[in-house]
């Protein structure tokens, strides 16, 4: 399994010279399986350049939407494979008692927001509520589970052989309760992320920013680290960067996160930050307690083109 980030920004696209290194596109991660199956996690604006890169390379594409907030679906109408008649696109998303997934997405892919309707898409497209039991896509098993965010929202766990990925880009597991005070079974997303090889997780806010945004459905870095620690993730990729966080800020953010991870007695090489067009590393860090300088030093790594470790 390989995972490549095509958009790591949260809330709204944030293009510009201040965000060139980490990128301004919203949530989208490509997951390529050993058998050639292609999965796309969320359809933020990052899916547009992904679609251009994928054109003609995959006959069937599985898009797994965590939820239908705009920053997770905004790129869907600009995903080139949707306009190829021979491409089969299967879109999964959270069920809602209010309306079908098709109807809810059609609100975006319809007038006055879109010149094209869902029924006009040339590809073979189908919409499915994510099953509440584990299911198979190609060589991977996939599991979806509701997580704490505003509105129906899923996290996903993808397992292929000994490698697993948990994708929880919008998540506020510590809303109203300290993670340290909760039993495992009472932590949102715990089962999805337990012992995962790579956890891609919401890290939208600094601790100082969080009080003004409590209840908005996102995590402060302290809770992101606490969650990753509780689930014993082998690697953590900080994701869903706040649009107000420019490259220089994110350099310091991941450096601080890695240091705080070290203070927990863990290997700072386990901490990464998602950056557009860069793969994420699944490999277990070499040895607990390794010096960050022996991996890619926090901060200096962010300056360099290496996103896979902080």
């Amino acid at each position: 399994m390989k995972a490549t980030v095509w958009g790591a920004r949260g809330s709204v696209p944030a293009p510009g010279p201040e965000t060139n290194r980490y990128g301004g596109n919203t949530s989208c991660v490509q997951v390529s399986l050993e058998d050639g199956s292609e999965l796309v996690l969320d359809a933020g604006t990052g899916i547009r350049p992904l679609g251009l890169a994928m054109t003609g390379t995959a006959e069937r594409i599985h898009i797994l939407l965590t939820h239908l907030h705009m920053d997770h679906i905004q790129g869907l109408m600009f995903f080139a494979p949707l306009f190829h008649p021979k491409t089969d696109v299967i879109i999964y998303g959270p069920a809602s008692p209010e309306a079908s997934l098709t109807d809810r997405i059609a609100r975006y892919i319809s007038a006055p927001l879109s010149p094209v309707e869902v029924r006009e898409l040339p590809c073979q497209v189908s919409f499915r509520d994510a099953p509440d039991i584990e299911w198979q896509i190609g060589s991977a098993s996939v599991r979806a589970s509701s997580v704490a965010h505003r509105g129906p929202t899923l996290g996903y766990r993808i397992t292929e052989g000994d490698t697993s990925l948990a994708y929880i880009p919008d998540h506020e597991p510590a809303l109203g309760a300290s993670l340290d005070s909760l039993g495992d079974e009472w932590i949102s997303g715990y089962a999805l992320a337990k012992d995962v090889s790579l956890l891609i997780h919401d890290a939208q806010y600094t601790d100082a920013e969080y009080p003004a945004h409590m209840g908005w459905g996102h995590s402060r870095i302290t809770d992101t680290l606490a969650f990753a620690h509780r689930v014993a993730a082998q690697r953590l990729a900080l994701f869903h960067h706040d649009p107000m966080h420019d490259d220089d800020m994110l350099d310091g953010f991941v450096t601080d996160a890695a240091e705080r991870w070290r203070e927990r007695g863990c290997d700072p090489a386990q901490i990464a930050i998602a950056r557009e067009r860069r793969p994420l590393d699944f490999a277990r860090p070499r040895a607990p307690g390794a010096s960050p300088s022996s991996a890619s030093a926090p901060g200096s790594a962010a300056r360099s083109p290496d996103v896979t470790s902080a």
Binding site: R143, S145, S146, V147, A148, R157, L175, G176, D184, E185, W186, I187, S188, Y190, A191, L192, K194
Partner: peptide
Amino acid sequence: MPEAQKPLELILA
């Protein structure tokens, strides 16, 4: 993967 996770609705409650 652990199966003992409480439903999200109970966690939020």
